[in-house]
Amino acid sequence: MTEPLTRLVLLSPHRVDAGQADALIASLRDALSAGDAAAVILRLAPSDERSLVALVKRIAPATQEAGAALVLACAGFSGDLVSVAARGGADGVHLDKPAEADLRDLRGRLRDGRILGAGGIETRHAAMDAGEAGIDYLMFGGLYPDGATPDPEGVRARAAWWAEIFETPCIAVAGAEAEVAALVATGAEFVGLESGIWLPGAEAVARAQALIARSGETP
C-alpha cells in the first residue's frame, strides 16, 4: 500500500487587516487552484472582535470553496479567538508558543470538530506537552511576528523526529522555496509555504506540488 502524499498548507503574512483582504483573496484563489492545499493559516492583525469576524467572513469562502480549511492566528489579540472562528465561519484556531493549559482550555471550548493547532515550539519537551494537550497538528517553523526566521535545519530535524514517532500530524514550514524538497523528505504530513513563497505567484505552489508528486512515485 502506498503512503499518502504530503499536502500543502499556505501561511498568510502576519497582521492581515481589512485593507489587505481583496488582494489576499485574489492571491489565495490563484494559489489554491495550483496545488492540493489542506489549509490556510490566516494570521490576523489584532482588532476588535466584530471587525475580525467581518474580515474572516470575507476571506473564508476563497479558502473553503477550494476545499481547504481556514485556521485563524492572531498574535497579540486579547479577545476570544474561538468566538471569532465560530462567528466568522473559520475551521479552527492556531496558537504560537502556547502554554499547555491554554491549549487544554481551547480544546475543551472548540466545538463542531474545529481544528486546534500549535506552533512556535522549539524544544522536544514543549512539542510533546502540546501533543498531549489534544492538538490536531503541531507546526514547526514559520516566520515569527517580528520577522525572525527559524533555522531551516532545526525545522527539518524537528519535523523528521516528530513524523517518525508521533501520530499527531505536523506541518513543516518552508521559509524559502529551496527548503521544500527537504521538508517533504521528512515524512511530515503537511509542508507549509510561507507567504513569501506563494504570494508572488501560483507557479511556486505548482512547483511544490510537483515535488510532492515526485516524492510519492514508486522507485
Rank of each mutant, 00 (worst) to 15 (best):
V16N: 04
A130L: 07
L8G: 02
L44C: 06
A206F: 08
A148K: 07
L52S: 05
G117N: 02
P98N: 10
R7N: 09
D80N: 15
A202R: 14
A188M: 10
A26I: 07
E179S: 06
Q64G: 07
L138N: 03
L5H: 13
A206G: 15
F140W: 05
A85Q: 06
A148V: 02
P46T: 07
A206E: 15
R214H: 13
A163F: 09
F140I: 01
M1S: 13
P219N: 09
E177L: 15
M1D: 10
R109Q: 14
M128R: 15
F166H: 14
V56N: 02
P145N: 05
A127Q: 07
P61F: 12
H125F: 14
E167F: 11
P4M: 11
A185H: 11
L81S: 06
A160L: 10
S12D: 00
R214M: 10
R50T: 14
T168N: 05
M1L: 10
G141N: 05
F77Q: 10
G147K: 06
C74P: 07
E122K: 08
E203I: 03
P219R: 14
T6R: 08
V173E: 04
G120K: 00
D105V: 12
V71C: 06
P152I: 11
G67I: 08
G201H: 09
D105E: 15
M1Q: 11
A68D: 03
R156Q: 14
A133G: 09
A148I: 00
D22V: 13
L24K: 04
Q64C: 06
R124W: 14
A163I: 03
I135Y: 04
V173C: 12
G196S: 12
G113I: 10
A204T: 11
R114E: 09
T168M: 10
G201S: 11
